[in-house]
Amino acid sequence: MKAVYFVVSLLAFASVHVLAYDPSPLQDFCVALNDSVTKGVFVNGKFCKDPMAVKAEDFYLPGFDKVGNTSANPTGFVVTSADVTTLPGLNTLGISLVRIDYAPKGQNPPHTHPRGTEILVVVEGTLLVGFVASNQNQNRLFTKVLNKGDVFVFPIGLIHFQQNVGYGNAVAFAGLSSQNAGVIPIAKSVFGSDPPISPEVLQKAFQVDQKIIELLEKPFQV
Score class of each variant (00 low, 15 high):
140 R>W: 02
137 N>V: 12
124 E>C: 03
95 I>K: 14
103 A>D: 07
136 Q>E: 11
135 N>D: 14
151 V>L: 12
154 F>G: 09
149 G>M: 07
152 F>S: 03
94 G>E: 04
155 P>M: 05
103 A>G: 08
162 Q>V: 02
154 F>R: 09
107 Q>Y: 01
132 V>T: 13
96 S>F: 01
146 L>G: 02
165 V>H: 02
176 L>C: 12
163 Q>N: 14
136 Q>R: 07
154 F>H: 02
125 G>D: 01
122 V>F: 15
134 S>H: 04
131 F>W: 14
111 H>T: 05
112 T>R: 00
147 N>Y: 08
107 Q>N: 11
98 V>D: 08
163 Q>A: 13
139 N>W: 05
122 V>C: 11
122 V>Y: 11
122 V>K: 15
144 K>L: 14
135 N>K: 00
153 V>Q: 13
144 K>M: 12
177 S>V: 08
128 L>Y: 15
144 K>P: 01
159 I>Q: 04
142 F>D: 06
105 K>R: 14
136 Q>Y: 08
169 N>F: 12
110 P>K: 07
134 S>Y: 09
140 R>Q: 15
135 N>H: 03
175 G>T: 10
115 R>S: 08
140 R>N: 12
143 T>C: 13
124 E>I: 09
119 I>H: 02
94 G>F: 05
93 L>K: 13
143 T>M: 15
123 V>M: 13
162 Q>M: 12
170 A>F: 13
143 T>Q: 15
129 V>I: 06
158 L>A: 11
158 L>T: 14
133 A>R: 09
